[in-house]
Nucleic acid binder design. Structure first.
Length: 782
DNA sequence: GCTGACTGCCTACCT
DNA sequence: ACAGGTAGGCAGTCAGCG
């Protein structure tokens, strides 16, 4: 009487019913229809590890004797803990809500060393133990249920589903939304400012706006809710919806006594893991979380994010800044424009979600985290969950996250650059240096040889500099995981070659490869992160030390064969482009160091300042790479960055400063004449803590204080855009926030002296040009 | 009271 | 809220200065 159901897993949550836990899998079937699968009465469990002086049997009988409330049964199982085989007691409870209490009581028993995995909650555990993967296909035997409390089809499960891989992508319904609320002064506050406009764009290419008409927004909320329920999206997406839009909507609803019913089980969004808002049965994505990972986007507005991804929804609209909302809303004639603007925001958000969904789903599938969580979670937690999955596969117990003391260690080497211009420069990079070192030397938490362990010297690799020793065999956890990841990447690359670049499968595999890369590259840093479950400082420290040794050997070899090294940082070296010598070097690395170094690119000309980590290179196709310099920094005014970029280009193209210097003089003349628009004079800096916690005065902090005074609310890590204005006093006194400044107030002298001149001179001084020669009045030979 | 040398705070960047 | 290495602006302090 059961029926087979193939489904794509979107989310999991749990419901407590009579103290027992029901697992709820929110899925879509092959036809793209949403379905709820309920697996009732799923027990929870954790493990108790006996002290070395005791045994699992003894611990089991202690637990039985103590009669701890909620323990349903115990079982002795074989596991591994940091690679060592251990007999542990699996403690099962039918009342998952009691687990932490039970674990605490068990942890107190005299023969118990520790409890483990009591911090892994039932929902995620259900997925892990049964090999279920978010954003992947599965198959289950299901029993139709007559349950009426949710609007979609419900089935019961008697046993867990199984993975049933398929490259197919379900057709998911997506709804993007954007909220505008207007305050009388500064930011809108949910306590007294109703939502003015709520726009929604749906994957069937429709856009709807809900505009407040009455004195409050209850009707607006009700209509939006009806709209959501009617469209019934699988994915809801916004921009800063986790931290702003949903909390605002929730507070408005509370204020109005309006019970939200937006999810698939009859309630509203609620805060969940890693700061994301959970909407039962739907995936709630926040594109801002995605933008946070894109370091190229300096000021993370929706408009900038859209531009970065080539989303053109804002094309026709003139931009409306948040501080202008109030004005646009207040005037009937302009209100239409504000509505159109908000609709463009919703559509841009939808496009961004569509573009990035393949990456999000692949990252979810790889880490095993639900898609909305994985996007919000920091890299460390993504690695955490990936490792938890891998640990389970090999019977390794999952260590708890502990508060560990922090001891810094020595990191990578950066070479002093050969200052000036160089022609024909090759850049050589190690391929995944840290991961490969960790594999090569088997650096792992369980392969470490501690003082008390006795292992024959020949079976051990010692990192001289850190004095840490690692067993050569068997292969450690990190090494095995990293090898798997690197192999998967190679596999994907091979597969991809045989595919049509326009096919969906190609696209998805590419995104999978990106996800694999993210996790691979984060493992070294993860190992040295005190918050990591598998934190072992010696592993990261030794990887860093071996990395230094590696790059040093490469440099020494280059010297020996007369290959000039111009610069190097961590796992890269810049050398004169002498192919025969480079080839010898690559071969040496492969044979002697057992690592791979690759020729990344060749610059026709490069420019190195005296500082490390700041240089520029001209590629054969005319493109410019600029690294570390003001051009690529978000905290320099556009006018200075533009001038510097032009200078770099002219210098690299001409090998002479003339055109560059002329350009700078013209920029300064424009500045003095007031021909530079205000937006090119804004300096953006992140406010990293509340203004009152700063120990010194700083321009962006003072600007932030002015915003607060004007009634604006600032979120944590907000970028403050400010302009230096005319007047007396300290610089910080002259910094005014963008929202409150007028073009006439600008102190152009500051931009000349402290922005354009130093940024340009930094480059031109390499060619012997002095700062004063860059002033219009000092033009030579005119 | 101003100048210059120096230190510390702070932010953003590189691999 | 993955690691350490690095640059550089500005504030602030203090010595020197008739």
């Amino acid at each position: 009487m059961t029926q087979k159901l193939e489904f794509y897993l979107l989310d999991v949550n749990t419901e407590t019913i009579d103290h027992s836990t029901e697992i709820r899998l929110w899925v879509v079937n092959r036809k793209g229809k949403p379905v709820l699968l309920r697996h009732p009465r799923v027990p929870a469990h954790f493990y108790a590890m006996p002290k070395p002086s005791s045994t699992a049997e003894s611990v089991a009988s202690s637990i039985a004797g103590t009669k701890i409330a909620g323990v349903s049964k115990t079982e002795i199982v074989e596991k591994r803990f940091f690679g060592k085989p251990v007999q542990v007691v699996k403690v099962v409870s039918d009342q998952p809500e009691l687990v932490s209490k039970i674990a605490h009581a068990v942890g107190e028993l005299k023969n118990v060393e520790r409890t483990v995995e009591d911090d892994i909650r039932v929902g995620p555990r259900y997925l892990i133990e049964n090999g279920l993967v978010p954003c992947a296909w599965h198959v289950a035997e299901t029993i139709p249920s007559s349950a009426k409390e949710v609007a979609i089809d419900v089935f019961e499960l008697e046993k867990p589903p199984t993975l049933n891989e398929s490259a197919e992508v379900p057709n998911l319904k997506m709804l993007a939304f954007s909220v505008i609320a207007v305050g009388a002064k500064g930011s809108a506050r949910p306590e007294h400012d109703p939502i003015a406009i709520l726009s929604a764009a749906t994957s069937d290419e429709k856009t709807h706006s809900f505009v407040r008409e009455g004195k409050d927004d209850s009707e607006l909320l009700a209509k939006f809710q009806d709209f959501v329920r009617e469209f019934d999206p699988d994915i809801i997406v916004g921009y800063t919806n986790n931290r702003l839009d949903w909390p605002y909507i929730i507070k408005r609803a509370e204020k109005l006594g309006f019970k939200l019913n937006l999810d698939r089980s009859g309630s509203g969004p609620h805060p969940s893991m890693y700061g994301h808002m959970s909407i039962a049965g739907r995936v709630n994505l926040d594109i801002y979380d995605l933008a946070s990972d894109m370091i190229e986007i300096k000021v993370k507005t929706l408009e900038n994010t859209a531009e970065f991804f080539g989303v053109t929804e804002f094309g026709k609209n003139e931009p409306i800044e948040e501080h202008e909302y109030q004005d646009y809303w207040a005037h009937e004639s302009r209100r239409t424009k504000l509505i159109a603007w908000n609709e463009a925001r919703a559509r841009a958000t939808l496009r961004l979600a569509e573009l990035n969904l393949p990456f999000v789903t692949q990252l979810a599938a790889l880490t095993g985290m639900p898609p909305d969580q994985v996007l919000t979670a920091a890299v460390g937690f993504r690695v955490d969950w990936y490792l938890i999955r891998q640990a389970h596969r090999v019977g390794e117990l999952v260590p708890k996250r502990l508060d560990q003391p922090y001891f810094p260690y020595r990191g990578a080497i950066v070479l002093e650059p050969r200052t000036g211009l160089h022609d024909n420069v090759a850049v050589l990079d190690f391929a995944s240096m840290y991961p490969n070192i960790m594999i090569l030397r088997n650096l792992s938490p369980e392969t470490i040889v501690r003082g008390k362990d006795s292992v024959a010297a020949k079976d051990v690799f010692e990192v001289k500099e850190t004095k840490a020793k690692f067993r050569k065999k068997p292969e450690g956890f990190y090494a095995a995981v990293l090898r798997g990841l690197i192999e998967e990447r190679v596999r994907i690359r091979e597969q991809v070659e045989r595919l049509d670049q326009k096919s969906l499968e190609y696209r998805i595999l590419r995104e999978r490869e990106k996800a694999v890369k993210v996790i691979t590259n984060a493992c070294y840093g993860y190992a040295g992160w005190t918050g990591a479950r598998w934190y072992v400082r010696e592993v990261a420290e030794s990887a860093a030390a071996l990395g230094r040794g590696t790059i040093n050997e490469v440099i020494a070899f280059a010297r020996k064969i007369g290959l000039t090294v111009i610069y190097g940082d961590t796992d890269s070296i810049f050398v004169e482009n002498a192919p025969a010598k480079i080839d010898r070097l690559l071969k040496m690395v492969e044979k002697e160091l057992e690592l791979e170094i690759k020729g990344d690119k060749v610059y026709t000309r490069t420019l190195f300042t005296e500082a490390k980590k700041r240089y520029a290179g001209l590629l054969p196709d005319g493109r410019l790479d600029i690294v570390g310099l003001e051009v690529v920094r978000g905290d320099w005014a556009e006018v200075a960055k533009n001038a510097q970029e032009a200078v770099i280009r002219f210098v690299l193209e001409d090998k002479s400063p003339d055109r560059a210097a002329h350009h700078v003089r013209r920029t300064i003349a424009d500045l003095r004449a007031g021909r530079i628009p205000l937006r090119d004079l804004v300096i953006w800096k992140t406010l990293t803590k509340p203004v009152e916690e700063y120990k010194v005065h700083a321009p962006h902090v003072e600007a932030a204080k002015k915003l607060l005074k004007a009634g604006w609310e600032l979120t944590s890590d907000e970028k403050i855009g400010y302009v230096i204005t005319k007047g007396k006093g300290k610089l910080y006194e002259k910094a005014k926030p963008l929202a409150l400044v007028g073009a006439k107030e600008v102190d152009v002298e500051y931009y000349e002296t402290n922005q354009v001149l130093p940024a340009s001179a930094r480059i031109l001084e390499l060619l012997g040009v002095k700062e004063r020669e860059l002033l219009p009045e000092n033009a030579k030979g005119a």
